[in-house]
Design a protein around this nucleic acid. Structure first.
Lengths: 93, 93
DNA sequence: CAACTATTTAGAAACTTTTCTAAATAGTTG
DNA sequence: CAACTATTTAGAAAAGTTTCTAAATAGTTG
């Protein structure tokens, strides 16, 4: 996992919206796309960015591709943020 | 605060490194710059991105500009991530 | 106030990202 | 297997990001 890739993936509003949608469970590429005012090709691009960042994974069924949250990467990001909690040991006024 | 701005700011390795450095307390622009192999102008650009994202704030003293972590935005980001914890109420196998 | 130190701004080059349309792939089903 | 549905890939245009050098600003101090 690369933090650069992860944060870049999260910096786009459509991609964050996709992740929020996927909280309810897996969805096909087409179903995801129908929530947005962009072409299927563009949605496919965003899904590929999320997949490269390991924020989602895909499974195939018939001629559908389903996407699902990969929660383990969320845990890793939380750990990165935890570095900024409390501490303040050396604070200089 | 805008999540787009925040995550974009976090997507650059130099900017993440600056944030980690600032955990120890406030630092001047020059002091921050001396840790990197880039011009002061470039460091100034990165600091402006972090400032626009509200991840740091600045204070002036003599002809130095000091930068400091703004921890409140970190808390807001943690809340955004918390949306992805647990739940799984509607999981369909 | 002139010279100095610290930092930012402006402008340009190189690179990356986002979006589209059109075409390709892949799997399904009469 | 031909036609269909779902999705991805390729290529290009437009917009955004990162870095540099050079110049500007701003504050300090002899």
């Amino acid at each position: 996992m690369s933090f650069a890739e992860t944060f870049k993936a999260l910096s786009d509003p459509a991609r964050r919206e996709i992740l929020l949608m996927l909280r309810e469970g897996k969805m096909s590429a087409g179903e995801i796309g129908s929530h947005f005012d962009m072409t299927g090709a563009t949605v496919s691009y965003h899904l590929s960015v999320l997949k490269k960042a390991d924020l989602v994974y895909e499974t195939k069924q018939k001629n559908f591709v389903f996407y699902e949250l990969n929660t383990s990467v969320f845990e890793e990001i939380m750990l990165w943020f935890a570095q900024f909690k409390g501490e303040n040991s050396d604070e200089n006024k």
